[in-house]
């Protein structure tokens, strides 16, 4: 990937992230923080790739720890967010 293309992606995604939550009610602050915590769990993909390509005990150990940590981020983040948001289901709003 060309460095400048990466910069363009970075800039566009940053604007997208900003726009997405400009109008969020206070009651959703905590669930949304938890939800965005889950979304950065995408790091799991990167740790899996790193572990897949790791060579030698040191790299493999670090890679293993990385995958385990990322999996906690994803799974825990999902479980907690889902529980928080479950409370908003089937309730009429406005």
């Amino acid at each position: 990937m060309n460095g400048f293309i990466a910069l363009y992606i970075f800039m566009t995604a940053a604007f997208a992230g900003y726009e997405i939550i400009t109008r969020v009610p206070v009651i959703l602050h905590t669930p949304l923080m938890s939800g965005s915590n889950f979304v950065h769990g995408i790091v799991l993909v990167g740790t899996m790739i790193a572990l897949a390509e790791a060579r030698g005990p040191l790299e493999v150990s670090i890679g293993f720890v990385g995958v385990a940590m990322a999996a906690s981020n994803v799974v825990g983040g999902f479980a907690v967010t889902e529980r928080m948001l479950e409370m908003f289901k089937s309730k009429k709003n406005e």
Binding site: I9, G17, I21, S36
Partner: peptide, 15 residues
């Protein structure tokens, strides 16, 4: 990772 990470970075800062 670049996109999801950046979106969280921006949304999280605003939040």
């Amino acid at each position: 990772m670049i996109i999801a990470g950046t979106v969280v970075g921006a949304a999280g800062s605003l939040l």
